[in-house]
Design a protein around this nucleic acid. Structure first.
Length: 217
DNA sequence: CTCCCGATAT
DNA sequence: ATATCAGGAG
């Protein structure tokens, strides 16, 4: 007699327990010293690796220390500083409009609600959730990036493609106090085991809980 | 939906 | 050569 299939809720809790044990040190891998730096770093992280972002921000954060520094800088100068990241024109434009509105609407301070963050240029749900969770320790949402989207699909936790819908599914399955950490666990697992191209299901800590395991050979 | 885009791994 | 990387705007 075979075990009845676990409910999705119970499976999610088991996945959380396993990944928490596998990655006890999981945390944000973008380097930052204050909320503004995390906001900028997260805008820059679109479609490029954290490692690349950290190389650029190491010198960027010495050159630009306040929203005014970004807002008043020559756009083409800022573009050059961001060139190695790709999408650098968009990112420069986003940072400048973001910092202008930061000054106009919030006195240069980074706001602490998703709605206010998303009114800033270049800031969507994912970036807002990252800043709230990692700069302010506010579990207001689950940051759904490329890794979280991919793993939520493979693990059978959401059948949707749109990040907002995936986030809504995950919020029902994950205890709110773990929303920020949950993103980190999936991201760390995505980077170290559940790769986009050839996931290492053989050594995966949750392969027995994963409906997609060993289907990538 | 398309566009933005360089660095890296395969 | 091609896929992928902490997405967001038009």
């Amino acid at each position: 007699m075979r075990e009845p299939a676990k409910s999705k809720a119970a499976r999610t809790i088991e996945v959380i327990n396993r990944l928490a044990k596998a990655y006890p040190e999981a945390q944000c891998e973008l380097n930052f010293a204050n909320p503004l730096e995390l906001l900028i770093a997260t805008i820059l992280s679109a479609r490029c690796t954290d490692r690349q972002v950290n190389v650029v921000t190491a010198r960027l954060f010495k050159k630009y220390r306040s929203p005014d520094d970004y807002a008043q800088s020559d756009p083409s100068d800022l573009e050059l500083d961001l060139k190695s990241l790709g999408l650098y024109r968009n990112k420069a434009k986003s940072i400048q409009s973001c910092c202008r509105r930061l000054i106009e609407l919030h006195g240069g301070q980074v706001p602490r609600t998703a709605a206010e963050l998303m009114q800033l240029g270049g800031v969507g749900r994912k970036t807002a959730n990252v800043v709230l969770g990692n700069a302010f320790n506010i579990n207001d949402g689950i940051a759904v990036d490329t890794h979280v989207a991919r793993l939520a699909g493979r693990l059978g936790l959401s059948a949707h493609k749109l990040p907002e819908k995936i986030e809504a599914d995950l919020k029902k399955l994950v205890p709110q106090e773990k929303w920020t950490l949950f993103s980190h666990w999936l991201i760390w697992h995505g980077r170290r085991r559940c790769y986009a191209r050839h996931p290492d299901c053989l050594h995966c800590e949750v392969n027995d809980l994963c409906p997609s395991a060993f289907r990538f050979d």
